[in-house]
Simulated scan of single mutants.
Amino acid sequence: MTVQQPRTGVTLADFDTIMREKVPFVGDMGVVTEQLSADQARLRLPFNQRHIRPGNVICGPAIFALADIALYAVAWLVVPKADLAVTTEATVHFLSGAKPGDLLADAKILKAGKRLLIAECHIRSAVDGALCAHVIGTYAMPPEPR
């Protein structure tokens, strides 16, 4: 199977740099972009003991942050400068406790319109592959440059 490249030409290194420089909070989390294609992104959140909550599972805010970053990544696949793309809605279904370890986010575009992008993200534990969360998000997209 051939993987189509992003329409915008954004690379893995580009997106990691965007996160470090334009969204320092995300850069501080250490999220790594593992894959970008025409309509999908895979990101990894390396394990950090600070993400653990009582019950020895990864906390919800860390899981949602990873999902939101992955949804932002797919916005960059369709708009050359998605700096101004913002989350307008998100529905999170926490499905199972995430064991201590890295988390993987697989996001894909469901619909990309002129003003709104709708995408979904699955968060899995890299430890055992368990599906930890399913997120559907809507992003308001910036107007196209003239």
Score class of each variant (00 low, 15 high):
F15H: 09
A65Q: 13
P143M: 10
Y139N: 07
L117V: 08
T138I: 05
Q35W: 07
A75D: 04
A112H: 09
L66R: 07
F25L: 14
P80N: 04
R115A: 13
A70R: 01
V92L: 13
H51C: 14
L45I: 07
I52S: 00
G55A: 04
G97T: 05
F15W: 05
P54R: 14
K99R: 13
D28T: 07
T87H: 02
T87C: 01
A98Q: 05
F25S: 10
V92N: 07
Y72D: 00
G60P: 05
P142V: 00
E21T: 02
P143V: 12
A38K: 11
C121E: 06
A105T: 03
G30Q: 01
K99P: 07
M141Q: 10
G101E: 11
C132P: 13
A70C: 12
E34W: 03
R50F: 15
A133S: 09
L84T: 11
M1T: 14
P46Y: 10
D102T: 06
V74Q: 01
M29A: 11
I58N: 05
G97V: 01
V79W: 08
G9H: 11
R115L: 13
G101F: 04
D16L: 11
F64P: 00
V3M: 11
A85M: 07
E34C: 07
R146S: 15
R42D: 06
D39M: 03
P46D: 08
A133I: 01
A73R: 06
V10H: 10
C59M: 15
D83A: 12
M1F: 15
D102N: 03
V92C: 08
L110M: 11
P143R: 10
L110F: 02
G137V: 00
G113V: 01
E21G: 01
T17Q: 10
D39S: 09
Q49Y: 14
Q4P: 12
A65I: 09
F15D: 07
I109Q: 00
T2H: 15
C132F: 12
A130R: 12
F25T: 04
P100K: 03
Y139P: 00
K108L: 07
P142S: 02
I63V: 14
V32S: 03
G9F: 09
V135W: 06
R7N: 09
D102I: 13
T33P: 06
Q40S: 13
D28M: 15
D68F: 02
D16Y: 05
L116A: 01
A140D: 12
K22R: 15
G137W: 04
A41T: 00
A133C: 10
T8K: 01
L43D: 02
V92K: 13
D83M: 12
F15T: 02
A90M: 06
P24S: 02
H93L: 10
